[in-house]
């Protein structure tokens, strides 16, 4: 079979390919909305997916996510892109039902590689118990792949990014630093083992976290992707009207990330996220530059950031570890709204 190395496209790949959050907000600011009595989660809160009630006991979750390659191997890329797209449904507390492929492919490049990407996507869709319904393909200079996903949820059980309460404990289910390790790999500074660990994490579905969240009555969560831990935490703070505090030394991080950051291996997306959080964030004087930039690192197919009532936080962490997320940790807390949305302490 003809092989095709996707790494020539990987510099701007994964969730780091997102339009900068500040630019997106400017674009969205004056667009008309489509209000509807059954629209339970719309665009106002910048949540992971939209939710539309179709019966008193049933709502649809809809989301889409696609991006250029993050790695050389097409099959791995397909799995990562699909895992990432499905994650938005899980972040809302839902069960994914069906998926559609979204594909851009350069004319003349080996179609065997495209087939491998799609095979990777289907592999993850099957693992998630989701039905693949079809898709759409276009020609484009840079390959891109992702899914549009439909999920379901009971309207009373929706988990949003707008329900954080003062006193909640912040839990993160996967280590961060995928953007830094991918950049380190491109410049030959990350070890093969460090790179492989990150690929495997990006291929891990967030599905098993959903039942744990519901068991402990979680109402607020989001998945960590292109805007980084800081960017998504700030969006959660803004949507909920609270201040979020993060303790960087408690944040689970992939092996090698802090070394790379110290070396100056800081991906451009981290600087764009720093611009976005800007003056809405305060960093305590004792926090190192590397720790601050770690929280800005764009994640691809990252874990869930969960707001948990304090009485359940310890048990939720233990159950997440048992559910297959061994690095789950308490990384901060939620306070009443102050002058700033995010504190890095």
């Amino acid at each position: 079979m003809e092989t095709f190395d996707l790494s020539e496209y990987a510099a701007g790949g994964g969730c780091s390919a997102k339009l900068p959050a500040a630019e997106l907000q400017r674009v969205m600011a004056d667009l008309p909305c489509t209000p509807h009595p059954d629209l339970l989660v719309g665009t106002e809160t910048h949540d992971d997916a939209g939710v539309l009630r179709i019966r008193d006991d049933l709502a649809l979750i809809q989301t889409t996510d696609f991006f250029p390659p993050v790695c050389a191997d097409p099959f791995t890329f397909g799995q990562i892109a699909a895992t990432n797209a499905l994650s938005d449904v899980y972040a809302m507390g839902g069960e994914a039902l069906s998926a559609l492929n979204i594909v851009a492919w350069p004319a003349g490049k080996p179609l065997t590689a495209l087939r491998e990407i799609l095979r990777g996507g289907i592999e993850k869709v099957k693992e998630a118990g989701v039905v693949m319904m079809g898709g759409h393909t276009i020609q484009d200079k840079i390959p891109k792949y992702g899914l549009a996903v439909t999920g379901t949820i009971h309207p009373d059980h929706i988990i949003t990014n707008a329900a954080a309460q003062p006193g909640d404990i912040l839990v993160l289910t996967k280590p961060i630093g995928t953007g830094t390790i991918l950049a380190g790999h491109r410049i030959g500074e990350a070890s093969p083992q460090q790179y492989q660990t990150v690929l495997e994490s990006m291929m891990q579905l967030n599905r098993n976290a959903v039942s744990v969240m519901h068991y402990y009555g979680v109402k607020c969560a989001t998945d960590i992707t292109g805007f980084g831990l800081a960017g998504h935490a700030l969006k959660m703070a803004g949507a909920s009207g609270v201040t979020v505090q993060i303790y960087p030394e408690k944040v689970p991080v992939f092996d090698g990330v802090m070394y790379l950051l110290k070396l100056g291996c800081i991906p451009g997306a981290a600087f764009r996220n720093l611009d976005f959080v800007g003056e809405q964030m305060e960093c305590a004087s004792g926090v190192s530059y590397e720790s601050k930039m770690l929280t800005m690192d764009a994640q691809t197919s990252g874990g869930l950031l969960i707001c948990c009532p304090p009485e359940h936080a310890g048990q939720l962490v233990q159950d997440m570890i048992r559910a297959g997320f061994p690095h789950t940790a308490i990384i901060g807390d939620v306070t009443a709204s102050g002058s700033l949305g995010l504190m890095i302490c």
Binding site: A183, R186, I187, L263, G264, C265, P267
Partner: peptide, 30 residues
């Protein structure tokens, strides 16, 4: 390619002589 220019800059900052200035040549806006 990014972030190599920053890595090279960071490295150069370690080895400066006292009073020495630093010049960085880059051809990418990012």
């Amino acid at each position: 390619p990014c972030p190599l220019p920053l890595v090279m800059t960071r490295k150069a900052l370690e080895t400066l002589e006292k009073g020495e200035s630093l010049e960085i040549l880059i051809d990418s806006e990012n």
